[in-house]
Design a protein around this nucleic acid. Structure first.
Lengths: 210, 210, 210, 210
DNA sequence: TATGAATGAGTATTCATTCAT
DNA sequence: GATGAATGAATACTCATTCAT
């Protein structure tokens, strides 16, 4: 006699554990982690209030897995392939990276602001494998890409690739947070992306001073 | 004649209202706005639980004032004057702006992440005079500075000053948030600041391709 | 399979919802609705403070059900059947109605005075089925009875049956409220009931003036 | 050097004590005693929150005086003189008494329902001189009047005057409470008063059975 | 193992009363 | 005596967690 399955799982083949994480992830993506109750999650999962405690130590652990999955999935949802060194132009590739990073942070940051405010959740998240997947994966890709271009001579050999990556990721934080702070702020226009690319390519020094 | 003063105010000359804002500000700076209870605030201020309602409509209003004060004070705590166009070198000035922005965001961002998750608090804060002095003030200063340098020819006339400001402010977000996410991340080293300045000045394009 | 039952329910077969209504009803009967706290009710029911919110939207809803039950039970507790037209004598029947009404109002009025002062509770109570069964039910019975006697000629065809019912119900209010106002006031004696019946039957006009 | 007078008293000659009672009385008449706060009363009196405690033991004592004044004033506000035995007709006089009693209870009962729910206040009120002035004064008048008519032969010598008074006062309770319970209930029409008078004069017994 | 009601500590807020000025 | 801010106990309600079924 096998143990009873949750009603919500009938016919499916996922474990209840995964089902709960998926439900929590949907809520985290939609409303962030703040103000989310155990009951909200159980409702979303169409499952009894208490099951959670058969699969996770507490709410925080489930949330950590949910946030982790949210980061992973947001990254996986990025369209197309990351640009590769030597292909197209550096300008086009930087633009592609900026666009990707912006899409990623638009998806991720609303939920992440809540994570920053919950030290316990943050710690739980840090214990998970590759906890920094969100942002860090893309950051590593970008750094790798830039190194590749350096080898091919399309990026200056002394360019500070870590700094560039920080600038790219950072400007996404800024654009998204400004929108969160004041939804009236226009979403970043293509012209802004052009300006960012140009700045990253040539800097602000006048031509005659180079 | 006059009613009695709170025991915690003996000897001082501040109003209890200011005393409460200061106490809440300390807590906001230390722990952010999330999870702060009115009791915490009353304890910190060494006053009775109910006093705050003699001076503020509700907890949210007090928190808005506390966050506001925190932003104001963090800005006031910045050392020295903001660089002015034409003085020193553009490199030194950018470095100074980055250093200032980093100090400011290090002080402000931990508390601000909580504000993002509390729409009501955000709205209350927006009602206060010049609530965004924090990041926006410095952003405006930097934009103004860059325009001044453009007039003097030390910055390219076609440089995208808004984009530069977004990159500077954004990279601070990134550095601070990375540190929050994983305290093991090293605080930004001077070398990193150098790299950022160089990137902003010259971009990543190789010299021969310019 | 089934979730656990409240400790206070062990051995019984009532739902906790009914248990809570019964507990609240006892308190309402004893002390009225004013000044009743959710804690009082939880104590009386021997359950945890928060349970009531698993079964009712808020305290007011539970109180409405409790008052409703109190009215219903007070009516059910009346002894015997209401007199019927044509049986016994009109005098005996009026006496019976007065006695019933007095018993009913003695049970009901102390709690109802509180309801008058709580408009929200009054509204909740009005939403319940036949909420005014209390006073209104008996009033309708009496009116119907008197009409029946009119048909049989034992009551004057031009008698104002509504007025008689108002007098009967009203005098009960008066007797009960006077007792509430000053417990020293004697409970209505049988002689008083006789006097009321005589007055309702014959009025105060002297025989020779009829 | 005489002690300071309250600002609200400047130019008047009433004591602050009387001023407070008058203010509380206005509120009691307007909103009843339930839900009235000490602060409400101080505001209405335009006086500091704490003064009350210089003149009364506590809020309850002030309220008791306020209710007492409200009863007294409502009785004093009745128009015209109470009918006197021998004048006009008994019917007209009973109608006048009913009208007076109805006016009195309309003024008094909304506040009194609250008093019934506050045992402490009720006890305080009972300690005041002639605490039952409200209603009882009129009841005594009516009883006296009926006795006078008995002496003059316009009311049957064996009429139960106490019962008649209880019926008159009681029917007023009923009419007012029904209106409180359901404001849609029509205010008592003149026709109803006629019916009540007729019933009190002649009873319900058919003429042929007398 | 799933269920979902029961638990009770914790929250923001109110308000009668006190008391330094 | 008057002032009105300070006090703190009390209130209704929420929600993570437990546990009998």
């Amino acid at each position: 006699m096998s143990p009873r399955r949750a009603a919500a799982l009938r016919g499916g083949d996922r474990s209840l554990r995964e089902h709960l994480i998926a439900a929590a992830e949907r809520l985290v993506a939609r409303r962030g982690t703040v103000g989310l109750t155990v009951r909200d999650i159980a409702r979303e999962a169409q499952v009894a209030d208490g099951v959670l405690y058969n699969h996770f130590a507490d709410k925080e652990e489930l949330l950590a897995y949910a946030v982790h999955a949210h980061l992973r999935d947001a990254e996986a949802a990025l369209e197309g392939q990351p640009p590769r060194p030597g292909e197209a132009s550096v300008a086009a590739n930087l633009r592609a990276y900026l666009t990707r990073a912006l899409a990623l942070h638009t998806a991720i940051l609303p939920a992440m602001t809540g994570v920053f405010t919950q030290p316990g959740l943050l710690a739980r998240l840090a214990e998970l494998p590759d906890p920094l997947a969100g942002g860090q994966g893309l950051r590593a890709e970008l750094t790798g890409y830039l190194r590749g271009e350096q080898e091919r001579g399309r990026v200056a050999p002394d360019a500070a690739v870590e700094a560039v990556a920080a600038l790219v990721v950072g400007v996404c934080h800024d654009l998204v947070l400004r929108h969160l702070l004041d939804p009236a702020t226009p979403a970043p226009a293509p012209a802004m992306i052009d300006d960012l690319v140009r700045t990253l390519l040539h800097g602000v020094t006048p031509a005659e001073a180079r």
